[in-house]
Design a protein around this nucleic acid. Structure first.
Length: 591
RNA sequence: CGGGGUGUGGCGCAGUUGGUAGCGCACCAGUUUUGGGAACUGGGGGCCGGAAGUUCGAGUCUUCUCACCCCGACCA
């Protein structure tokens, strides 16, 4: 070791003695720690295969190192993203990862964002955070330098490592705390101009994911904590996906969070007088339904939430429905909410959960009713008294309620306002585009002068793609029992030249020749020149890692002088003369 | 943050009523192998997650901690 280092030093000093270069495109030099066994802490296939194929290694929960092969895949995808973003008129920047706290205080998100924002102080005791997203930084930057409508629109993006201190990181690189993301931000004079860029980004995203040969859906979405009006998510379809998508035959699709429901009719009707009845131990809707021999949809479910400013909110849903928190938040004009704790519920209603209702609460409380619950209907609600419910309640008459809202989660089989009925599929969210409007430019007080010489806030859009996540989604969608099956554009190398008998100088020579010829072509090529292992290992590794093409110099070469080409996705095998290798690969990989 | 689980060589695991740590893979050396994760021989490697306690003696029992994983609320 030491000797080698000295030799290297001497060779550096003496130009006539060239430094020995070890190309990393040779397996014998490449750091690819493949694993025969599946690591026990990897749950989903993409995570298992990324570790087994030597793409990534875990450093801490939700924090990973990318190894040479994994990095190459990431870089391939980044290159596609760059190309399409640039083509769509965006320009690349690199914003700081460590963000001054004062920027986040300016937008008020320092207090809103919660513990996902990793905060710390420097030696001068100044607040900082690790950027989980960069609206503040970019608004400050662009807003400080763009002062006229003549300089608009502008669309900037970066590809950068973000950090979100997730409550529960999981699924490897798919939901990690540290992750690489492409985020773009556009600035406009008018909402109409934003529409143009939003559409351009939409088209660019479609092209990006199509180039990766992903099966995906564009879906209506809730804009979440980032804020803003319209937003769409790009979902790679996969049964293991974390998101539920509801779609109709007419082609409309939405994230469950955003899927709207239809109000059920609420005709005027006569209802008898309210009557308290004894319902011992019926703490759940199911128990109550069984006890009263009624179906859950005729019962009312009462939930208590607390807003960010500590106001209690009572939500009334049909017994068989569940609350959609983003919808509640939207009804409250974006105010944050959380479920009330038991002690708070007792404080507000005077009873523990199970017997809650809108009548006779201990404390006044805003009541919101889902539009599946008829205000004029004959309903059963909790009495705010232990083991008691009230029947024959008419919300319009007994509680003076007049408004209904869309508050519940849609479920498969529901009618969609867009026509047709919903059915459910699952997906992995790999991209998200938003119309932000003036939310951040107002918060950060960033304006420009418009054509009329008037001050106006920037109208903004923002557009994200999860880089690591997309790579994982691709594996999730394209693998078999042997390993990964890369689409051509993402493969770390396109061709794996396997020399089955490295001891045979003739074979080694053919391998070297093919390797060099392929290096001069458009195909990224790696040479499996390892001499100390059996062929079987080389085949297994090639399949595990998922190179689109294996080029084997071995038994067949000795017999006929031909080399064997194996296509990973179909398993097709052909034997060709060495001078036909390139044309065969071209015919296989160029679509 | 609630519920469940796991921590023992690089990886996957075993370890009995407490008696001083073992297996497979991987690794190193040598010989023989070479079209499907080779065979034989010989080796190297472990404060048994950490701390405290019980005991003559703790991987094993007790308490406390930490880390990681899985199921639910956040998000690219």
């Amino acid at each position: 070791m030491l000797f080698k280092r000295i030799v290297t030093m001497i060779s550096r000093l003496n130009p006539s003695n060239p430094i020995e270069i070890r190309p990393i495109m040779k397996f014998s030099n490449l750091f690819v720690p493949t694993l025969k066994e599946t690591p026990k802490d990897a749950e989903v296939v993409s995570h298992q295969l990324m570790i087994r194929a030597g793409l990534i290694r875990k450093s801490a929960a939700g924090i990973y190192s990318y190894l040479p092969l994994g990095l190459r895949v990431i870089q391939k995808f980044e290159a596609i993203v760059r190309e399409e973003m640039n083509k769509a008129g965006a320009q690349e920047v690199l914003l700081p990862m460590v963000v001054p706290g004062k920027l986040w205080k300016k937008s008020a998100r320092w207090d809103q964002y919660g513990r996902e924002l990793l905060r710390f102080t420097d030696r001068k005791n100044q607040d900082f955070c690790l950027g989980p997203t960069h609206e503040e930084v970019i608004t400050e930057l662009i807003g400080s330098h763009i002062t006229s409508y003549k300089q608009l629109p502008i669309n900037v993006y970066q590809i950068q490592t973000k950090f979100r201190d997730e409550i529960r990181p999981r699924f490897g690189v798919m939901r990690s705390r540290e992750f690489v993301m492409k985020d773009a931000y556009s600035f406009h004079e008018t909402p109409e101009d934003l529409d143009l860029t939003y559409e351009a980004m939409h088209k660019a995203y479609v092209r990006i994911f199509e180039r990766c040969q992903l099966r995906f859906k564009v879906v209506n979405a809730d804009s979440g904590s980032i804020g803003g009006s319209e937003s769409a998510e790009f979902m790679v379809t996969a049964d293991t996906g974390e998101d539920e998508i509801l779609e109709t035959d007419s082609g409309y699709a939405a994230n469950v969070e955003a899927a709207e429901t239809v109000a059920i009719p609420d005709p005027e009707m006569e209802v008898g007088q309210p009557e308290a009845i004894n319902t011992p131990g019926t703490k759940t809707i199911d128990a109550l339904a069984t006890f009263l021999n009624k179906s859950p949809e005729t019962l009312v479910k009462t939930l208590i939430y607390i807003t960010d400013d500590q106001e209690p909110i009572m939500i009334l849903l049909r017994g068989d429905h569940t609350l959609n928190e983003p919808k509640l938040k939207n009804v409250l004009n974006g105010k944050g909410v959380r479920p009330a704790k038991e002690a708070e519920i007792v404080d507000i209603c005077g009873v523990t959960p199970g017997f809650l209702g809108p009548l006779k609460t201990q404390k006044p409380c805003q009541v919101l009713v889902d539009h599946s619950v008829p205000l004029n209907g004959d309903l059963t609600v909790g009495a705010n008294e232990l083991d008691t419910h009230i029947v024959h309640v008419q919300l319009s008459r007994d509680c003076g309620l007049t408004e209904r809202y869309d508050l519940r989660n849609a479920v498969p089989g529901d009618e969609s306002p867009q026509g047709g009925t919903y059915k459910s599929t699952r997906g992995i969210e790999v991209g998200h585009i938003f119309k932000l409007g003036d939310k951040y430019s107002l918060a950060m007080d960033k304006t420009f002068l418009n054509a009329n010489g008037k001050t106006a806030p920037f109208i903004m859009g923002c557009y994200g793609i999860g880089i690591g996540r997309t790579v994982a989604a691709s594996i999730e969608q394209c693998h078999d029992e042997k390993g990964i099956v890369w689409p051509t554009e993402l493969a770390p190398f396109h061709v794996d030249v396997i020399v089955a008998k490295p001891k045979d100088p003739e074979h080694t020579a053919i391998g070297d020749q093919l390797y060099k010829a392929l290096l001069d072509s458009q195909w990224d090529t790696i040479l499996d020149d390892r001499s100390d292992i059996s062929v079987g290992v080389k085949f297994k590794d090639a399949e595990l890692i998922g190179f689109p093409v294996q080029c084997v110099i071995g038994k067949i070469t000795s017999e006929t002088g031909e080399v064997e080409l194996i296509k990973r996705d179909t398993g097709d095998r052909v034997s060709v003369k060495p001078d036909q290798v390139l044309s065969t690969i071209n015919s296989w990989l160029i679509t």
